[in-house]
Structure formats: structure tokens, C-alpha cells
């Protein structure tokens, strides 16, 4: 890793990154434990907090974007991120819309659903 900055600046970067990460961690933790939000609102807020912490750690700990051009690490990261969005987002999207909708059922509902399907003879 070719640092552009001095040891002191790297030191400060780690401290700032750590402080921000701890704050975000506590923020999302108390959001859930103290039930400050629920449903989709909570999910969206957790999403935003998790991704802001991802960016804090990428910038302050993993030093992404500090390398000289061509920025191969940034390119590899961007490509990986696109693949992840397709795999994770796609899987959840597809599975969520299947007829056999496993994700939103409690076990009783699922059993009931299975029974009615069986009675219909599938």
C-alpha cells in the first residue's frame, strides 16, 4: 500500500474511522433494542446505517481510493459490488415472488398452505 500521507495522518484516520464506526454501531443497536422504529422504516434505517459504516471502513481502514491510477482495487471492488447486487438482490427478489412463498409465512401458515395445496392435489 503506497500511502500518500504521513504516519500521523494514518493514525488520525484510524481513530476517526473507529469513532464513526462505534457511533454508527451504537446508533443501529439502540434503534432496534429501544424499538425506536419498526417495519420497513426500521429496515431502511438499518440499511442506510450499515452502508454508511461500510463506506467509513472502506475509506478509513481499507484505504480504498488512495492508490495511484489505474485504480485496479476500486475497479475490482465496483465489479464485485455489481455482482453482489445481482446475486443477493436477485435471489431475495426471486424467492420472495415464488408461488411457494416461504419467506413471509409463519410455520403454522406454511403448514396450512401445504395442506391446502396437498388437498388440491398440487
Amino acid at each position: 500500500m503506497e500511502y500518500k500521507s504521513s504516519a500521523y495522518q494514518i493514525y488520525m484516520k484510524y481513530l476517526v474511522g473507529f469513532t464513526l464506526s462505534v457511533l454508527i454501531t451504537f446508533g443501529s443497536y439502540f434503534l432496534v433494542v429501544n424499538k425506536l422504529a419498526d417495519g420497513y422504516m426500521l429496515l431502511i434505517m438499518l440499511f442506510i446505517l450499515a452502508f454508511s459504516q461500510l463506506f467509513v471502513q472502506l475509506l478509513f481502514f481499507l484505504h480504498l481510493g488512495e492508490e495511484k491510477k489505474p485504480r485496479l482495487r476500486v475497479q475490482a471492488f465496483t465489479f464485485m459490488f455489481i455482482i453482489l447486487v445481482i446475486i443477493v438482490g436477485g435471489s431475495i427478489w426471486v424467492m420472495h415472488h415464488l408461488n411457494y412463498n416461504m419467506m413471509n409465512f409463519t410455520s403454522e401458515q406454511k403448514e396450512h398452505y401445504m395442506m391446502t395445496q396437498r388437498d388440491k392435489g398440487f
Partner: peptide, 12 residues
């Protein structure tokens, strides 16, 4: 990512 997707689908 794959493990996360699997987990998200099966968590219920």
C-alpha cells in the same frame, strides 16, 4: 454474499 442470500431466503 451467496451465504447472505441463502440465509435471507431461509430465515423464516
Amino acid at each position: 454474499g451467496c451465504l447472505f442470500a441463502t440465509y435471507a431466503v431461509l430465515r423464516g
